[in-house]
């Protein structure tokens, strides 16, 4: 293949997706970005003026607090999910075809139910008089109901449940794809199961784990329905506030500015984490080789 073809080939491969993203995402977003620099009054967006008012408004400690809470909750959920999903993926990956497919369906099943309906399911389960609290009371473990809803606990439970598959699926794909001969060879060379896991399985599945965690994290950052339904107004996350600002206040400039900050902040975090993991992976690989 000549050098010229090599130069344009990647762009050719990127073209279909980029084109779709332009129409389905980028161009509409540009309108929003523009909105974020306009003034606002109850009469609507004032397109004749350009201002940074929406962004300066976000410098308020209140908004910083909401961003901080969103970030904290998202990280907690991603961390717990990663720890829970790894053993599950290990187990699922070594099952036979049929069992594997059925278990994956189990983990996918939360997505078969509309998020609003699911929230009602959670209410029956987590509510002050829900199944869990009833069990706890019957066992005599508590007198007063344990608050599992309308607080951060509820949001975390709901989102671990809802976004679990995003870590599990890539991880499963990677673990199931590892050539069993590799582990067999390592075993033949005298490595113990734990060592095989640490030096072969883990390094080979790390990129997929990372990919899954990043997807999971971004989903958590942008989640709207679950925090709104299980946390209520008490657990204000960025998306919830963006919803209110856009729909109740109809303040589209502020809503757009909020989204831009969320977008940029999350992207920066993701890129940073990738750098850190990339260097970490080199270290793991290096040790593994030794």
């Amino acid at each position: 293949m000549n050098a010229g073809a090599r130069r344009w080939l990647p762009f050719l491969l990127l073209l279909p997706l980029t084109a779709v993203l332009c129409v389905g995402f980028l161009l509409p977003l540009i309108q929003s970005v523009e909105n974020s620099f306009h003034g606002f009054s109850p009469r609507g967006i004032d397109r004749s003026t350009w201002t940074l008012a929406a962004y300066t408004k976000l410098f308020d400690p209140f908004y910083a607090g909401v961003f901080g809470r969103t970030l904290r909750i998202s990280l907690i959920i991603s961390a717990i999910t990663a720890v829970l999903a790894y053993p599950v993926a290990l187990y699922v990956a070594q099952l036979r075809g049929r069992a594997q497919a059925f278990l994956l369906l189990v983990y996918m099943s939360p997505w078969l139910i509309n998020v609003v309906v699911k929230a009602f399911g959670w209410t029956l389960l987590l509510g002050p008089r829900g199944t869990i609290n009833t069990i706890l009371r019957t066992l005599g473990l508590t007198d007063a109901p344990v608050p599992l809803m309308f607080n951060e606990t509820g949001v975390i439970i709901g989102l671990i449940h809802g976004h679990f598959i995003f870590v599990l699926l890539p991880l499963w794909a990677a673990l199931a794809g590892i050539d069993p001969n590799l582990r067999w060879a390592a075993g033949n060379l005298g490595a113990r199961p734990w060592e095989i896991f640490r030096r072969v399985t883990l390094p080979l599945s790390l990129p997929a784990l990372m990919a899954g965690v990043i997807i999971n994290f971004t989903m958590n950052m942008a989640a709207f329905a679950t925090p709104a339904l299980l946390g209520g107004t008490r657990v204000q996350v960025v998306s919830f506030l963006a919803y209110e600002v856009n729909l109740v206040d109809l303040n589209w400039p502020l809503g757009a500015a909020m989204s831009m900050v969320l977008l940029v902040a999350t992207l920066v975090l993701v890129v940073l984490s990738q750098r850190i993991v990339a260097s970490g992976r080199r270290r793991v690989m290096f040790e593994g080789a030794r």
């Binding site: 509409p28 950052m221 856009n246 909020m258 999350t266």
Partner: peptide, 15 residues
């Protein structure tokens, strides 16, 4: 390619 689900649904939806 990572950006679309990071924009809150309302904002992207209205846009």
């Amino acid at each position: 390619f990572l950006a679309p689900l990071l924009v809150p649904g309302v904002v992207l939806g209205i846009a």
